[in-house]
């Protein structure tokens, strides 16, 4: 998995390429943790996300909770498979998906 980070003032864009699973989730968690300061809009680009496991969902949930306090979090370019995961797990109710 690779993480492409672009910071634009208080807007942070993160594109995730590859698999977000047990082995790679801690990497995203660490990246987010060090970038949260002063961010009011976090956009996650899932165009190149191949796979999302429950460990990945946990990171998304934590990010959503953090952003609820300081701004908003948007997930874009969600493909059908990932969207199904969001539906099955009920995450679709708490995430903002464009």
């Amino acid at each position: 998995m690779t993480i492409e980070k672009t910071l634009n003032g208080s807007e942070l864009n993160i594109a995730i390429v590859g698999r977000l699973d047990t082995t790679t989730a801690p990497q995203l968690e660490a990246t987010l943790k060090e970038s949260f300061d002063g961010i009011t809009k976090l956009t996650l680009d899932f165009a190149a996300l191949e796979y999302l496991s429950s460990a990945g969902l946990r990171v998304l949930l934590a990010a959503q909770k953090t952003m609820n306090k300081q701004g908003e979090m948007i997930i874009k370019n969600v493909n059908e498979t990932i969207n199904e995961i969001f539906e099955v797990t009920g995450f679709i109710d708490i995430l903002t998906i464009e």
């Binding site: 909770k65 009920g90 995450f91």
Partner: peptide, 8 residues
């Protein structure tokens, strides 16, 4: 499905 437990 509802949202996961302990999530929110």
């Amino acid at each position: 499905a509802g949202f996961v437990l302990a999530g929110m």
